[in-house]
């Protein structure tokens, strides 16, 4: 038998799901209405039904493209997490390193990735590696920023406690600072999960056309060239779903692998 609290939570979940579906239905109605009201041709805005048909018709390239982009996004995100954590640890251990290097990490965030993508292709070629490189650049800043903040946010009292029992810098890092930083890492990863998909697709715009690589970005540029707006919109939906999937995976990690650290943090 469900308790009142469980019933309330279940009701809230259903209410949340119903409201999301309701907004989607409203969007579809508005979409269809706009086509009818403004007499829009399918080349400018196909109907939801036409997009669905295109998605079914192009399901194989769409699936393979989503998979290719997904792999690039995951590899890029994972690499950014690795590099970001190493940089953040260095920043947390030395003010000098942080002051000297952090501005360059900010530079990576501010430089338009579209502007440097051609340069990266010159250096790295029309390869999967270039796509991952662009993804890493776009994902790195949120990870470094969050994890550095996390590593430096360990309570002063706890630092004193560790010092009182003779814990050196390495032990304080491993036992106190790193676990404290895990919830911050998760926040950084959640922010970067959406960016990873964006980074991979932007890189594919440039890389895909010069190779036999067929990610979502490559498909989009191809379909745009052939004025396949219906398939283009289907690809946009696929990329959105991919972003949501990646965000969901990070959220799943946060409550499974990192659950012990994130639960305690949420309920402090």
């Amino acid at each position: 038998m469900m308790s009142t609290g469980d019933e309330h939570r279940t009701k809230q979940v259903w209410l949340g799901a119903a409201s999301v579906i309701g907004v989607a239905a409203l969007g579809l109605v508005l979409w269809q209405w706009a086509i009818y009201f403004f007499h829009l041709p399918p080349i400018l805005l196909p109907s939801p039904w036409q997009v669905l048909q295109a998605a079914i018709q192009e399901r194989h390239p769409l699936f393979e493209g989503t998979l290719a982009t997904g792999i690039a996004a995951v590899v890029g995100l994972a690499t950014a997490v690795g590099i970001g954590c190493i940089l953040a640890i260095a920043f947390s251990q030395s003010n000098l390193i942080r002051k000297a290097v952090f501005p360059y990490v900010i530079f990576l965030q501010t430089v338009p990735v579209v502007a440097i993508a051609p340069l990266l292709i010159t250096w790295s070629g029309y390869t999967f590696r270039t796509i991952v490189l662009v993804t890493v650049i776009i994902c790195l800043f949120p990870i470094v920023n969050s994890v550095t903040e996390g590593l430096m946010s360990a309570q002063k009292d706890l630092n004193d406690l560790f010092r009182l029992y003779g814990a050196g810098r390495a032990k304080r890092l491993a036992w106190l600072q790193m676990p404290t930083a895990i919830p911050f890492l998760v926040i950084g990863m959640k922010t970067s999960s959406g960016l990873a998909v964006i980074g991979a697709i932007v890189a594919e715009f440039f890389v895909g056309n010069g190779s036999n690589y067929n990610g979502l970005g490559t498909l989009m540029t191809g379909w745009q060239a052939y004025q396949r707006t219906d398939a283009l919109i289907a690809a946009i939906f696929a990329s959105t779903l991919l972003g949501l999937l990646l965000f969901g995976l990070v959220s799943l990690l946060s409550i499974t692998v990192f659950g012990r650290w994130t639960t305690g943090y949420r309920n402090r």
Binding site: Q155, D157, L164, Y165
Partner: peptide
């Protein structure tokens, strides 16, 4: 000598490690 456990400190806030159980927090020193 520092770090021999002869001196203990109780802070104004409990300052427990949130990812450790009560037992694990007590074991920490």
């Amino acid at each position: 000598t520092a770090g021999d456990g002869q001196i203990a400190f109780v802070f104004q806030q409990p300052s427990l490690l949130p990812w450790r159980t009560a037992m694990e927090n007590v074991i920490l020193p």
